[in-house]
């Protein structure tokens, strides 16, 4: 029965690795400027994790195969090198490599979080609420009007709680239910939570950030390919969580200007 276990472990290990090696299930193709670093990091980690996984499982299987045979002699043997060799192997082969991987990986993290947005980045505000995202563009004056949460009223479509009567900056703000951005133009995303925690996850753009009620965060990114992508909520926010999404349209500058005109007219 030991041999059967050995074979089973090795078969399971190899079978488990197959879909990763064959790229059967892949994340959506990257369309951002910073995503390459993340993808590279994922691929490097996959090699490291895959080798460790297969090596450990196969070694486990081989030793079970070899040493589960009933033996009549009373001899036991000791692994060559003993514990010291194994501890050193754990520290050097796995520990140091994984830490090095982490050190290189911080480059990808820094590219997303430690760089300021460009001065000419396009500001867009996103508000997450149960269970929809809404977007706001500052309009021609380039300024967002202040928010008045007490004035939020979905009935009369005041989704952000704007007060154009009193706030000059709010008068030209453009509120939309889908997000459109020009291609190859940096976007500065200002994140605001209306009620509970949500998350802004766009797999294709390699961005993922929680909304924190009471704390407005920001992200910046550049999309490199025209197309429509899904923005999904990944932070449990209530009964409609699974259905909370918006579309991100990456348009050519010309298409974007037209889209903006249409939206302005619809306000």
């Amino acid at each position: 029965m030991g041999k059967l276990l050995a074979v089973t472990i090795i078969i399971i290990a190899i079978a488990s690795a197959v879909p990763f090696v064959m790229h059967t299930w892949e994340p959506p193709a990257d369309v951002s400027t910073h995503g390459g670093l993340i993808d590279e990091q994922m691929a490097d980690t996959m090699i490291e994790a895959g080798v460790s996984f297969l090596a450990a499982q196969i070694l486990l299987g081989l030793f079970i195969w070899q040493f589960s045979k009933p033996r009549t002699d009373s001899k036991v043997k000791t692994f060559p090198g003993g514990a010291k060799g194994l501890v050193i192997a754990a520290i050097v082969l796995v520990g140091v490599e994984v830490l090095a991987l982490g050190a290189f990986g911080s480059k990808a993290w820094a590219a997303v979080y430690f760089t300021p947005p460009a001065a000419d980045a396009m500001p867009v505000q996103v508000q997450a609420g149960q269970f929809a995202f809404y977007f706001r563009y500052p309009g021609p004056d380039g300024k967002f009007g202040p928010l008045h949460p007490e004035m939020i009223n979905e009935g009369n479509q005041n989704l952000f709680g704007l007060d154009p009567e009193h706030d000059v900056e709010s008068r030209d703000d453009v509120v939309t239910a889908e997000m459109a951005i020009p291609v190859n133009k940096e976007v500065h995303l200002l994140m605001h939570a209306k009620d509970v925690s949500h998350s802004f996850y766009v797999p294709a753009l390699r961005i993922h950030q929680d909304f924190v009620p009471g704390l407005d965060l920001s992200l910046h990114f550049t999309a490199t390919k025209v197309g429509t992508y899904e923005i999904v909520c990944s932070q449990l926010c209530g009964l409609g969580h699974y259905n909370m999404r918006a579309y991100l349209k990456v348009l050519s500058q010309q298409d974007f200007d037209e889209w903006m005109k249409k939206e302005q007219a619809a306000q």
């Binding site: 996959m46 895959g50 961005i207």
Partner: peptide, 22 residues
């Protein structure tokens, strides 16, 4: 071992951008 190696990914903030909450 199987559960442990996936920790290699999740321990890295950059990869967590893709895999967090999945």
């Amino acid at each position: 071992v199987s559960g442990g190696v996936s920790g290699f990914f999740l321990a890295q903030p950059s990869i967590d951008i893709m895999l967090h909450a999945t």
